[in-house]
Design a protein around this nucleic acid. Sequence first.
DNA 1: ACGGTAGCCAACTAAACAGTTGGTTGTCAA
DNA 2: TTGACAACCAACTGTTTAGTTGGCTACCGT
Lengths: 207, 207
Amino acid sequence: MLRDMPNSPGPRARSSAAATKQALLDSARDEFAEHGIAGARVDRIAKRAGVNKERIYGYFGNKEKLFDAVMKAAMDELVEVTAMPGDNPVDYVGKLFDYYVRNPVLLRLLLWESLYHRTNTLPEQQWRVDRCRQKVVSLADRLGEEPSDEIGRTVLTLKGLALMPMVMPQIAALFGASMDTPESIAQMREHVMAFARTAMENRTTAE
Amino acid sequence: MLRDMPNSPGPRARSSAAATKQALLDSARDEFAEHGIAGARVDRIAKRAGVNKERIYGYFGNKEKLFDAVMKAAMDELVEVTAMPGDNPVDYVGKLFDYYVRNPVLLRLLLWESLYHRTNTLPEQQWRVDRCRQKVVSLADRLGEEPSDEIGRTVLTLKGLALMPMVMPQIAALFGASMDTPESIAQMREHVMAFARTAMENRTTAE
DNA sequence: ACGGTAGCCAACTAAACAGTTGGTTGTCAA
DNA sequence: TTGACAACCAACTGTTTAGTTGGCTACCGT
């Protein structure tokens, strides 16, 4: 008794299901970014989405799985914007910086996630591993080296360079490096790119 | 009808009160570092301390105030082992790195705190401002420049360089930059120091 | 035109939670 | 010796929470 198409339309209205799901994802993204996993409230998410909270369980299973879905969606969105580090490592830093300035929500999600250490490493996260490896290969190509842990560390550091000013904005402010005006943001952007540039151009091909 | 000394001993045993308070602080520090403010459980804190949870309210008021007390204690304890960045910027990165490798708890507390934005601005943290300015002056001296926002950004970036691998360890792991063995930690340490070295040695004295 | 079912919801449940209460004990000042 | 009071605890309370249930509705294939 198999049904029609796999991506079958749905009952009430042809796109109602997908729209509801999306509304929940959007709402959950804000809620999780603001309060974290432990602090997020399922009722608030449902209410903000204008949907009954039972739908969360129907569509996503539970709060934690909803968070995973939010992360997946956010990362998919991010990958559309950013190039590979191998194209131009310095531009990569700049683009990442821009993205996180415009989209602080994603950074907060990443931080909450990294603080929330769950026991079992989730199995359905292979896409993440692949994506990181891709970046390592990309940068290795550019540098004319073989992919290695050292290249991996370099990609990580480039990423860190771009988002560090946003991780603890109040500490940045203490250093006169606040990012509250377009000018100060531009200066910070230039700074991290210059830092990346000098470091990359004079890179020793590691022991 | 005023009592004896301001820091009066207490009833049951002469130091029981202080000891209980300290046990709660220690227990709470671990709990908050692990789960954050929202995720921390008052019952767990009390149980770990081997004390009735009512004492938390008696001594600290509520969960949030307990967190503040934990932060205060942690910062007091941090007698600033780290040198000034001006002495040697690269060593500074190394020392900072070492400190946070050894004290991941403090880093986690700082991150939880920075994500948990409360309404009221933290009271009297002037020492923090002073200490940051001191670092900027220190590095400016070293570089033969006047203290400036650009120097401030550089100090911030150096700090970020040292911190980043610990901020998102699981992401680091995805890049083959995990820090689960003494060797991999040493490699990471060398990496960030090398990165800082090349960037600082080839530093352009900014526009 | 009608039965099956996806999508949805109001109302419910059991557990977990922060915070409280009332009372007991041991110490110390008088 | 005693009585006042700090320190402490077991047990309780009211609320909030993630997660569930049973049923209603509108669409869709037949």
